[in-house]
């Protein structure tokens, strides 16, 4: 049965992932950032109102609402939450399929009576799970820090932001699996995903914003900003004058950006499944 096979494949790859050096390296980075953010959260918690009043254009002495300060706190933490899936997905997804060829594990795995479709999906969900673990640890850190600093539990926006970061992980992992299904070498897959996300997407963004004065919402990197824009609808990487506000992103924006991320995920996942299924092992 396919679902039975997927669970066998998933468990197998999950074990391999959480024992890997990549996982522990990512976990170390996760905890390091968490530690730094915890330190700065406590050290600068009293300075946040001044910072946000400055950003709000009301001058550093102006009073800003407590809820905006709390949103600002979460905005900063969620900015990292938006970057973590990218790094985790690159760590876990880029070598996912190319390593089968490069490390020659394909020679004993592919001839087993299991479809490539099941192998791919099992491995994909294993990678998504370890990525979610990394995100979960950071989100838990954010939750605890918020509780300790403001003596309040997080609002529903926090959970929406977490959910969106999972959608982003799903999306960026699909892209990394697609890239990985094309290459025979892990290094090429790593470099391509980094270039695509941090260089090519940003280059397209800059071209559109400067030449056409339009923010290309269809870019994954822009849609991904919804993870922190759910608190304050401001994208620090947008060059469009007057764009953004101190209000949370509207529901329509959340739905649109989530849909874009889903669309990237589904299209690239389908493509990588097709390529992987037809992949020859020379």
């Amino acid at each position: 049965m396919a679902s039975g096979s997927i669970s066998v494949v998933f468990t197998h790859y999950l074990k391999n992932y959480y024992r890997s050096k990549s996982f522990y390296l990512m976990l170390f980075l996760d905890l390091l950032i968490l530690g730094l953010f915890t330190y700065f959260s406590f050290k600068y918690q009293n300075k946040l109102p001044a910072i946000f009043s400055a950003l709000n254009g009301t001058g550093s002495g102006a009073i800003v609402s407590a809820s905006l300060v709390r949103s600002g706190f979460n905005y900063i933490w969620s900015f990292v939450l938006q970057l973590l899936p990218v790094f985790a997905a690159v760590f876990f997804g880029s070598p996912a399929l190319s390593s089968e060829i490069e490390s020659r594990t394909a020679f004993n795995v592919f001839p087993l009576p299991v479809s490539r479709f099941v192998l791919h999906l099992g491995k994909f969900f294993a990678a998504l799970t370890v990525t979610a673990v990394i995100l979960g640890i950071f989100a838990l850190g954010q939750f605890v820090n918020f509780l300790l600093v403001y003596h309040l539990f997080e609002s529903s926006t926090f959970y929406i932001s977490i959910l969106l970061s999972i959608v982003l992980a799903f999306s960026i992992l699909s892209i990394t699996f697609l890239v990985s299904s094309i290459f025979n070498k892990n290094l090429y897959a790593y470099i391509t995903v980094f270039l695509l996300y941090f260089l090519i997407f940003n280059a397209i963004n800059i071209v559109f914003e400067f030449l056409y004065g339009y923010t290309p919402i269809f870019l994954l990197s822009n849609a991904a900003s919804i993870v922190y824009r759910v608190y304050i609808n401001f994208d620090p990487f947008s060059f469009t004058p007057g764009a953004g506000s101190i209000s949370p992103a509207p529901v329509s924006s959340i739905i649109l950006d989530a849909s874009i991320m889903f669309l990237y995920a589904l299209v690239t996942l389908a493509l990588s499944l097709i390529i992987f299924d037809r992949r020859e092992v020379k």
């Binding site: 391999n16 020659r104 020679f107 004993n108």
Partner: peptide
Amino acid sequence: QPEFYTYL
């Protein structure tokens, strides 16, 4: 010459 997942 077969290779295997090294962490398993």
